[in-house]
Design a binder for these strands. Structure first.
Lengths: 328, 328
DNA sequence: TACACTCGAGTTA
DNA sequence: ATAACTCGAGTGT
């Protein structure tokens, strides 16, 4: 309050995003963070590749003694590798029947190995690795997303600990709720939900959950309920405090693409809740934010479509959003 | 008209999508088409891989005579291949400076090649191929999209030819407009715009164009203008007859993901034109349509948000949309 | 050049 | 099985 007794500032001065964003340009990812992200990705990719290199060596060892490429068909243990070498991804293989895959392998042998001469084993192994490179690329996409979730979790736990707020965490595999500890670095790897109590009451944050109300998976669901009540609370739209999209990708070229996806996801959420005359808070947290999408995010923040937003690579923004989440 | 002189049917009976869609289930891609799409993709991928196999053989030949992995650094011609072997994609390389890449290569040599013993050349070549597998995967994504555009172009040309409508086509590379011929199978590979005249006047359809009005690329822009007038016509919102999104991907797992993107793209178009009090027709054509998104498409068709839609893998639906486009 | 397009390689609920 | 999530590998303007 100022001396006149009127509220200070304009209508928007107390919007949560204003704690960490002065202008829309603040949302944009710095080149430094982009570089660091790509480099970290490459290092992790090298780790992920190692088992496939081992598989390639094994495939070479199995194939070398064979007199002719067609003899590969006699070795049951390497049929999956042959399908891969024939250019068929695991995903594609799931859509094809056994006969189609076998025919593709036979065609591959005839068109690529039989004509490769003495070097046919290298041709086989090289083409196996080409497909497995795509395999690893796919895995890396998932790993990138998982790292983002861990980053957010780590920051929320740090924020809770800083505020001396006890918390529980849900073990994703066992589905058991456990007492949280700020000094346990494994929690972020194992959890898919956190629970604590703030001034308004109990709060539970669940990752990658699909509420029946929306019918689609949502990256972040914050409910006004205790951990043990989550399964029933999700049926009551009025208990949803906030919902959010988290995009961990670092590639600026993908930024607008994935923001478009997030916009529709958030729109579906708003539509579903508005049918219940409800309007829970909404938040977008992204690691790759480019100027054009920052404009749209800023507009949505300004008109209330979006309640909060932050750049995942900016520690201050992330801390501010975490404080907002735990107090919400 | 029926004998009473009243228009036949209900309000929606003359909606363009009703020519080829009776129910929303008609939009859903058949398993047969999905299978065929994945198989075609694998075959094309094998073709695309060949030059990289050759590069791998060349890399092996260059590396074999070297006494130690560190000697790789002395060969200027293979530095790009070393960066790839170190797990750095071309995309990532574009974000990293030369010193960072060189350090990554040195670390790669120390951590993976020096410890590989006598087999270090295979380790090098295998890791090069892992990264190039991802390279080919990326190229394949683009090829998939290009094939979809060609499929649509081929069908529009066939529809124009069937109706005896002369057309011009724009050569994407030379940017020259040429007289169309139904018997020239190369047009679909070379063109990025078609032009013809219908009962309403001249029409020009441009692919992948970014109108200043919207500020984003749009897969399909149909304008009421002659080919030669396109560059000025694009400035006048009232000349936009229809805009559309084309999604050529066959993967059902990507269907909703890419439909979410398309929804936002179409929303941006509608928002931009509605600011001019304009509402051009809109269309969605997709190869992978799953049940949930068919629901949303059907809703949008029913309430007029979307004017038309079709499954790219259904010849009848495609023909109907092409007839609609050329007469619009 | 900055920007934003292509789409499926994985994954999980 | 079904559905829908992860995100960057390319590309073009």
């Amino acid at each position: 309050m100022n001396p006149t007794g009127q509220p200070v500032g304009n209508k928007n001065s107390d919007q949560p995003y204003q704690s960490h964003l002065a202008t829309k340009a603040d949302l944009v990812t710095s080149h430094t963070e982009t570089r660091a992200g790509f480099l970290a990705l490459a290092l992790e990719k090298n780790r992920q590749a190692t088992p496939f290199i081992t598989q390639a060596r094994a495939l070479k060892a199995v194939a070398l003694p064979l007199a002719r490429p067609a003899n590969l068909l006699d070795l049951p243990n390497i049929q999956a590798a042959l399908v891969a070498a024939a250019g068929i991804s695991n995903k594609a293989a799931g859509h094809l029947d056994a006969a189609t895959k076998e025919q593709a392998v036979r065609d591959f042998i005839a068109n690529f190995l039989d004509v490769a001469g003495a070097d046919w084993v290298d041709e086989l192994v090289y083409r196996f690795l080409i497909t497995r490179g795509d395999t690893i690329g796919g895995s890396m996409r998932n790993i990138g997303g998982a790292i983002a979730q861990r980053t957010l979790t780590r920051n929320i736990i740090a924020t809770l600990s800083l505020a001396n707020v006890p918390f529980e965490w849900r073990h994703a595999k066992t589905k058991k709720w456990l007492t949280g500890s700020s000094s346990d670095p494994d929690i972020e790897f194992q959890t898919n939900a956190l629970s604590w109590t703030n001034a308004q009451g109990p709060r539970t944050l669940r990752y990658n959950y699909s509420p029946a109300i929306v019918g689609k998976n949502i990256d972040l669901c914050l409910l006004a309920c205790a951990a043990q009540d989550f399964d029933t609370a999700v049926l009551d739209g009025s208990l949803y405090v906030a919902l959010g999209e988290l995009k961990g990708g670092i590639d600026p070229a993908g930024a607008d693409e994935h923001w478009k996806t997030a916009r529709t996801a958030l729109l579906r959420i708003r539509d579903a809740f508005s049918r219940l005359n409800l309007a829970p808070a909404s938040v977008f947290v992204g690691a790759a934010i480019v100027s054009g999408m920052a404009d749209e995010i800023w507009t949505q923040l300004g008109n209330g479509t979006l309640t909060n937003a932050a750049n995942l690579t900016d520690d201050n923004q992330l801390a501010s959003v975490c404080r907002w989440i735990i107090d919400l």
